[in-house]
């Protein structure tokens, strides 16, 4: 058994897994950031007073929430270049697809958290003479962030694993790298176990970071009850 392990996990194989893990992390981090921005814009858009903005945000959210990520990635990679003549590199396409997908879910989380802030807060801020943008920036977002973080954390940890779908559009992330290694070593069991462990460790680290962030955002509330 041990001798099998040393023939499967050669320094070259470990280096390949490390390269794959870096691509997986890059995909996840980039699309989390872009997804969050998109989510904020679309979430606010859906709460807008202007009907066309609401409609546009609604179409975006329903489209990307209502279709499988796999189909979206295929569409962006294979169909879009034929329609528009613009062809993005595979990695960029994957980031675009994952961001659009994450943004649609984040939008609903953000909208929900903003709605959960007590209506009195907005009214009080308005009575104090704050402008709408300042109400959002100084009053609503700080309070909404607290309730949104656990759900957003869930969403982005999900994204870490969803990023494996980028393998179907030729991005050599962790899973595709592993498949390649399986094809030369014919040793699927130790390799897939290793890849599961790597995903688990990465999501565990992410979960801990989100827990830290959550505690930090809860700090003002803890001192007030103490």
């Amino acid at each position: 058994m041990l001798s099998t392990l040393s023939t499967v996990f050669t320094p070259d194989a470990l280096a390949a897994l490390w390269r794959g893990a870096q691509i997986t992390l890059a995909l996840t981090l980039l699309s989390s950031v872009f997804g969050l921005i998109l989510g904020l814009v679309a979430g606010l858009g859906r709460m807008s007073r202007l009907a066309p903005v609401r409609l546009l945000a609604g179409i975006y959210i329903e489209t990307f929430r209502g279709t499988p990520l796999l189909v979206q990635l295929f569409f962006l990679f294979f169909a879009l270049p034929q329609i528009t003549g613009v062809s993005l590199p595979a990695f960029n396409t994957a980031v675009l697809g994952l961001s659009l997908f994450a943004g649609a879910y984040a939008a609903e989380i953000i909208r929900g958290s903003l709605n959960a802030v007590d209506r009195g807060q907005t009214e009080a801020a308005r009575a104090l003479g704050l402008k709408p943008w300042d109400i959002l920036r100084l009053v609503l977002i700080p309070q909404a962030a607290r309730t949104a973080v656990p759900a957003l954390g869930n969403q982005f940890i999900g994204l870490l694993k969803d990023s494996s779908l980028a393998s179907v559009i030729t991005v050599s992330e962790l899973l595709l790298t592993t498949r390649g290694l399986v094809s030369i070593t014919y040793q699927p069991v130790p390799l897939y176990l290793a890849v599961a462990l790597i995903y688990f460790l990465l999501s565990n680290v992410a979960a801990r970071l989100f827990a830290l962030l959550e505690r930090r955002l809860n700090r003002p509330y803890r001192t007030s009850t103490a």
Binding site: A15, A16, T177, S183, I184
Partner: peptide
């Protein structure tokens, strides 16, 4: 394919 030895498969350097 990249997973079709001996026609295409990963090299040690990726």
């Amino acid at each position: 394919s990249g997973e079709y030895p001996p026609f295409s498969q990963p090299a040690p350097d990726g």
